[in-house]
């Protein structure tokens, strides 16, 4: 089973780290995975996106031109990538910033008010992890339990202090989606 996701937003929203967190979690789970950041001038132009592919067998192409999942953390990303989504695909929208009224009717929408939820946790910076928790719940890309279990390794030494906060953020996203 191969699932590809495009994770998109504006620079500073942590979309690239969301992608590498998802990819690292998948790797530690023993899955095949590729992570392809959008690079060059795009990165510096204020928007950012990356493609993550997770599979049970070798991945041919890391490019996601018609992904199963799109995460849009802001309105321009929603506009840009919803058209690429496969019919029946999952669109996770940060409803704090994205208006989904114009969404295609053949896709599934998961609206998560990540900014509000993050502020309740005390840090807007974990909005990306809240979305990741929601994504993992709503898709079958990786195992939520394994990700939480491996979170210290996934975040690495650099973010060790933030382990608890990130864990709570994942849980918030996960639980929000359950409801």
């Amino acid at each position: 089973m191969l699932t590809k996701a495009i994770i998109s937003g504006s620079g500073g929203q942590g979309v690239l780290s969301m992608g590498s967190t998802l990819a690292t979690a998948a790797m530690l789970e023993g899955r095949y995975v590729t992570y392809l950041p959008s690079y060059g001038v795009e990165v510096r132009g204020g928007t950012a996106n990356c493609a993550v592919a997770v599979s049970d067998e070798e991945i041919a192409s890391p490019v996601a031109s018609s992904p199963e999942v799109v995460i849009a953390m802001n309105q321009p990303s929603f506009v840009r990538f919803q058209g690429a989504l496969q019919s029946g695909g999952l669109l996770c929208a940060n409803s704090s910033l994205v208006h989904t009224e114009t969404a295609r009717s053949d896709i599934e929408i998961l609206a998560v008010p990540t900014s509000e939820l993050a502020e309740q946790l005390g840090s807007i910076k974990v909005a990306n992890m809240i979305m990741l928790g929601a994504l993992v719940r709503a898709s079958s890309m990786i195992s939520y339990d394994a990700m939480v279990e491996n979170l210290a390794e996934i975040l690495g030494k650099g973010r060790a202090k933030l382990l608890d906060l990130n864990k709570r953020a994942l849980a918030v996203g996960h639980d929000y989606t359950k409801d």
């Binding site: 990819a23 790797m27 995975v33 590729t34 992570y35 392809l36 950041p37 690079y39």
Partner: peptide
Amino acid sequence: DGILGQMMEP
């Protein structure tokens, strides 16, 4: 190529 260079894999 640019993809191999930029792509992350285990």
